[in-house]
Design a protein around this nucleic acid. Structure first.
Lengths: 230, 230
DNA sequence: CCTATACTTCGATGGGCAACGAACTGTTTG
DNA sequence: CAAACAGTTCGTTGCCCATCGAAGTATAGG
């Protein structure tokens, strides 16, 4: 028996769900709330849609804390959506009003209490490159070298070790789809940057704004390649 | 400004319409009544669906006397439907118990205008093994050797080269999950086999039936291993 | 003309389902 | 602990649209 394409197609054929899928076409993993916002629907409705999409194996989900990160299940799904995109554009259908994501939000923002966005990912890569942190299968740890480095910066590493919260934790970045640094050390780094006025929080937003001086100090402090920092 | 895939997808995502589209995947032009019968709906309902499909440029229609013949608008539509077929089968939608007609459909069938199923895959593998075609990362091309071979068979390769449509294209086979040959060459091979009466189309179905003589001629012509051909 | 056939239009019906408010579980933070 | 937040479940509402009966238009053949 031939597979029934109407099942999958009708899943894609709902406006809210197609907007969710389009948002995920970037390959990035997004949370349920972000997708609800993207599709301009309530969280309940999004939850319903997302469970359908996961149930039909169009999406996969990864739970992280109280967040759920959704992604396209595989390359084949992305390719099929791409075909539909091409077809839709050649057949000349209407255009969608796509809310352009805030470029500042993409650049650097706060993720609970630590730095995310391009900046956060650059920091993570720099620390990894200098072997301040090491990546095992899933977990990351602060290396001896890293421990010395941060002690010199004034971090009470021993105090952090006593805490229940892990010092280093990798957190999936939704705009970059790469890891950035969470955990108590990630929190410290952001707080430190804010305290030194390298950066400031923008009101009513998750955006973090670095000053010109802040960028140069921050990149020098953690040996971040200037190129990876816009 | 992205095109909105939900419009097209919801058109395909209706059970009756998807059955109509599947029936047209045979490449044949069918009348409204035939399509209504195929989808098991009334003539009025079919008329409604067909006007929508034509209105969105998924189908084209040709009026002939008091009949209207419907066809898929172009290859792109056929290819997109094939992608959806593949996706539906790999996502493991419910497979229904196989009826008697199913083995034939799996064995050889028409995929818009070229050969698919076990036969189509065997042909593809044979051509690849003899280096008539070569597979690059994604695309496939007709080799010099293949060009000579098909010119001897009477294919106007130079003419095909002028066409907008690619000569060789790999098309993922939903039942075999391997590639078979599409493109203008794939079309020629099927037409040639039908013209030489090695095979015939079954009425009201996508099944291609090879005669006993047809199998031996076909396998000899393209050096297909008899074992790969049930 | 008349009849048969092919297809369309109109109107009414009904079912499926997207949407959301309210209330719930589970996680993080202070 | 309480409060804030992420996500879910449930029940209700409303509407879109597939469906078909009935009637209308168009073509073909006597």
């Amino acid at each position: 028996m031939e597979p029934d394409i109407s099942v999958i197609s009708s899943l894609i054929g709902d406006r809210a769900r197609s907007r969710i899928l389009m948002a995920l076409m970037s390959g990035k993993a997004l949370t349920a709330t972000e997708l609800a916002c993207e599709a301009e629907i309530s969280a309940q409705t999004a939850s319903n849609h997302l469970s359908k999409l996961v149930g039909s194996n169009l999406l996969v989900v990864r739970k992280q804390g109280r967040h759920k990160y959704f992604q396209l299940a595989n390359h084949q799904v992305a390719e099929t959506l791409e075909m539909l995109l091409n077809l839709s554009s050649t057949l000349g259908s209407q255009k969608i009003t796509t809310g352009p994501a805030d470029p500042d939000l993409k650049k650097s923002r706060i993720c609970y209490d630590h730095l995310a966005g391009v900046t956060g990912v650059a920091l993570y890569d720099a620390l990894l490159g200098q072997e301040m942190i090491s990546e095992n299968s899933q977990n990351i740890t602060l290396t001896e070298r890293g421990e010395l480095f941060f002690q010199k910066k004034g971090v009470a590493v021993d105090e952090l070790k006593k805490g229940k919260r892990p010092i280093c934790k990798s957190c999936l970045d939704w705009s970059e789809r790469k890891s950035h640094l969470a955990g108590s050390l990630g929190q410290w780094i952001l707080e430190d940057a804010l305290a030194k006025q390298w950066a400031s929080r923008r009101l009513d937003s998750r955006v973090i704004t670095f000053s010109k001086r802040g960028v140069s100090q921050f990149t020098r402090c953690y040996q971040i390649e200037p190129g990876s920092f816009l």
